[in-house]
Design a protein around this nucleic acid. Sequence first.
DNA 1: CAGGATCCAATACGATACTG
DNA 2: CAGTATCGTATTGGATCCTG
Lengths: 162, 162
Amino acid sequence: MKTKSFAEMDCSIARSLEQVGSWWSLLIIREALMGSRRFREFEKQLGISKNTLTSRLNELVATGVMEKRDGEGGSAYAEYRLTPKGRALAPVLMALAQWGDRWAEHESGRRYAFVDRRTDAEISEIRPRRENGEAIPLREIALKPLKPDVRDPSETRSKEKP
Amino acid sequence: MKTKSFAEMDCSIARSLEQVGSWWSLLIIREALMGSRRFREFEKQLGISKNTLTSRLNELVATGVMEKRDGEGGSAYAEYRLTPKGRALAPVLMALAQWGDRWAEHESGRRYAFVDRRTDAEISEIRPRRENGEAIPLREIALKPLKPDVRDPSETRSKEKP
DNA sequence: CAGGATCCAATACGATACTG
DNA sequence: CAGTATCGTATTGGATCCTG
């Protein structure tokens, strides 16, 4: 999806973005979590063109985020379902939703909520926490290189001859 | 950034995606969390073209995710820093990184980690939890409409005349 | 309904060259 | 260094028509 592809970027985030594909893909996954299974449902709910929907669904199936299978019972139509790999993206969507609720509000308020199926309780937040369960303030979060940070793989010996 | 704009989609996730802008934007934010501040740094670390970088930085500043200010001390150059709104995206990046580590692995392994600045401990995971602190299995997470789910705002009275 | 085939407009990104 | 200006290209996504 990228010119040189984020996939080879040696960065988990970039590779995730590469595999996810596009903004639309994330919204399709959202719809799947809402319960949509059939082509038509995704099409209607998202207001996406058939073309784009077909492409994105195919990509998602190709990367193993969704799977296509025959409709259950009588329905003669195929269904698209999230795989475990796809469901594993829920935290990403939750984090995005949480951010949007706080920083990109809209007059119409929220339309849906993440829920815990077992308790039927709304899942209010997703946060990084310390060992003791305490939430970590955002300002105290940083990214640290693990390896020597070989960001410029130009040469091992830096000067051969001045 | 979208044709009809995700911003008017009445969906927190869509609005977030709209404001974030693009994949590159997220990687720029990643770099900022890694400590980059100056144009050149972002350019080098990301391998992004000047053009694109300029656009994305401007967008991020426009949406309040980053701010541009005069370089501290002697440096005559401007700096780009995350705002609180921008730092609030850290959980999104963490969720993406977590997913990529698990589902889009790369032979070279990880290059960096999220850390808790105060304890200097690595932040291993970000997960939805129940009240009691128990992690919620992904299969038990769903999205539920809050409002009557007015997904098709066609008409209030469904039939005028059969 | 579920798509595939076309066509087309908008744009995102990179490469390159230029400047204060 | 930190951009801006230009150009060329690939891709994205919508619209329309067609089919099993």
